[in-house]
Nucleic acid binder design. Sequence first.
DNA 1: GGTTCAGTGCAACCAAAGGTTGCGAAAGGT
DNA 2: ACCTTTCGCAACCTTTGGTTGCACTGAACC
Lengths: 116, 116
Amino acid sequence: MSTAVDDELWSAIGDPIRRTMIDLLLADGPGTATSLSRRLPVTRQAVSKHLAVLDRVGLIHAEPAGRERHYQVDEAQLARAVAQLSAVGSTWDARLRRIKRIAETIERHRTNNQGG
Amino acid sequence: MSTAVDDELWSAIGDPIRRTMIDLLLADGPGTATSLSRRLPVTRQAVSKHLAVLDRVGLIHAEPAGRERHYQVDEAQLARAVAQLSAVGSTWDARLRRIKRIAETIERHRTNNQGG
DNA sequence: GGTTCAGTGCAACCAAAGGTTGCGAAAGGT
DNA sequence: ACCTTTCGCAACCTTTGGTTGCACTGAACC
């Protein structure tokens, strides 16, 4: 159902700050800890820690450029993460449908047997 | 992009234990803290705390039954959560596609201008 | 009815994660 | 050369997930 790798990806994108960071990197292109921190409600150091987490799970990678470090999204890895999201989503969705169908079936049986 | 309510839902389903708990409740029907803890790698008390979190965001609700507390998934709320998952997923997916398209366009221009 | 047992809740305690401040080091602009 | 900017590291605090221990309560059993 869920592997250790999956959990790492999930916990990486589970944090709202990190999700927003990915959003920003996707929308505005590569950025640094400082540039991202200017658009987030946390300090540069906090952003830096989040970048390290995202880097560790491979969702982003850094490119040193002089005194700056440019981070950008790893598209393949993010695509994998998106796939996992939709996988869990569709699993739950399917189970919800099944439960609903069963509930309706039971209701129908009751109606038939007890005449309403 | 992401509201406070969204973040609550996300952080609720961001935890792997809590995701598994929802899976179990969906698969096996209503359960108690003790019954869930038997199928999870954590103690009953930890499960109980997770149940409290899920209850607080409305993803599950409890039904006292004698000395037991039966928890079950709130289908409507879980459906909302699933919708949020797929929303974020499709947003990222769309941006990835756009980036890919732009990259291909640039590549095509380079090929046209520099003759390969 | 009293004893025993299973399920809960509460409190104390611990470790890890997210966040902050402070500082020193390195690259760039003037 | 000097000042600015960006970064990384270390110390510290708070929240969160996890544990153990204990007291309480509903149900079963004699």
